[in-house]
């Protein structure tokens, strides 16, 4: 047994243990902490599977952003007295059966792969040079599966609209109900002064490096969202009302530019979302930059939650 195998087995045992303890936790707050730990550990597992792109996304989304969303939900439940609601046994049982079915389906799919795994990877690697990109993942996302990537970003905006539509009519156009830190803390203020500029450099780096190495708009956008949330939680900047004139253009600039380049492709390269020869890389970088901004704003507002206050004059 090689030392790699020992490491991997240890890692898998740890991840399974954390997963079980997350499921078994009686308290929602403890369960969310378990889930965040699980996400951070999973990013190490993706590294071991040589999927660094996924590892970056997992650290950002699984470790940071999903945890933030769920903590918001926990706080909301507690505020509404939701912790006291006892769930009846049949509901628990049905939930357990459904989860077990999903897990079993996944297990069957993973454990019994077809003899010859269908793959287009060699073709991607052969033709990657034409796009001018160095990162095959970016090549697939923006050249071969560009439509999926575009729709994925639109879905993010639809999700945000879904969250916003939970608000009563009286506060429409108002301010999301992000709970800021309860006590004004100069310690937290200090962190929110120091970390976001560093985060901005990291976000631009992630977005920029995505063209040739693991990284990309999603990772960069998530970093931006986290830094923005940190500044708002610390109370250094107010949560903006969604009627702000700068906010909605930022939200759609990524998908709009993506769509515009796609439509231009119909004229210049004879297909929707095709790039004119020689211009693929600069166009893709432009799309990535715009998408980073849009993803950052969308994720930040998703975590900020539904609207709760009417706009102040």
């Amino acid at each position: 047994m090689t030392i790699f195998a020992v490491f991997d087995i240890g890692l898998v045992v740890l991840i399974l243990g954390i997963a079980v303890s997350t499921i078994a936790a009686r308290d929602a707050f403890a369960a969310v902490i378990g889930f965040v730990v699980y996400g951070l550990l999973l990013s190490i597992a993706w590294v071991r599977l040589a999927a660094v792109d996924v590892a970056l996304t997992e650290a950002a989304i699984g470790g940071g952003m999903t945890g933030m969303l769920m903590l918001g939900a926990v706080a909301r439940l507690r505020f509404a007295g939701g912790n006291d609601i006892s769930i009846s046994l049949p509901v628990r049982f049905a939930t357990a059966v459904l989860c077990a079915l999903v897990a079993a389906g996944l297990a069957i799919a993973v454990l019994s792969p077809p003899d010859a795994i269908p793959t287009l990877a060699p073709m991607v690697m052969e033709n990657l040079a034409q796009s001018g990109l160095g990162n095959p993942v970016a090549g697939v996302l923006f050249v071969y599966r560009a439509l999926d990537t575009l729709l994925e970003k639109v879905v993010l905006i639809l999700a945000l609209l879904g969250v916003w539509s939970l608000a009563p009519d009286s506060v429409w156009g108002g301010i999301p109900g992000l709970r800021v830190y309860a006590r004004r803390s100069s310690t937290l203020t200090f962190l929110a002064q120091l970390l976001p500029p560093v985060g901005i450099v990291v976000a631009i780096y992630m977005c920029w490096v995505g063209a040739k190495e693991p990284g990309g708009a999603f990772q960069g956008g998530t970093v931006l969202a986290a830094m923005w949330l940190l500044v708002m939680i610390a109370g250094l900047k107010r949560v903006p009302s969604i009627g702000q004139p700068w906010l909605r253009p930022l939200l759609v600039v990524g998908p709009v530019i993506f769509l515009a380049i796609g439509l231009a492709g119909m004229v210049l390269a004879n297909a929707f979302l095709a790039y004119p020869p020689g211009y693929a890389k600069p166009l893709i970088v432009a799309v990535e930059v715009a998408l980073t901004l849009s993803i950052g704003v969308a994720l930040g507002l998703l975590a900020a939650g539904p609207l709760e206050q009417a706009q102040q004059q």
């Binding site: 707050f29 990013s43 660094v52 470790g63 962190l191 986290a226």
Partner: peptide
């Protein structure tokens, strides 16, 4: 594999972000 260093960078950034989120939403804070 130098790109793994970037994963460490993001892990450091989001670990502290998660810790702030935990402290903020700890029960009894409000």
């Amino acid at each position: 594999t130098p790109p793994i260093v970037d994963v460490a960078l993001l892990l450091a950034l989001f670990a502290s972000f998660a810790a702030v989120a935990f402290v903020r939403s700890a029960p009894g804070q409000e």
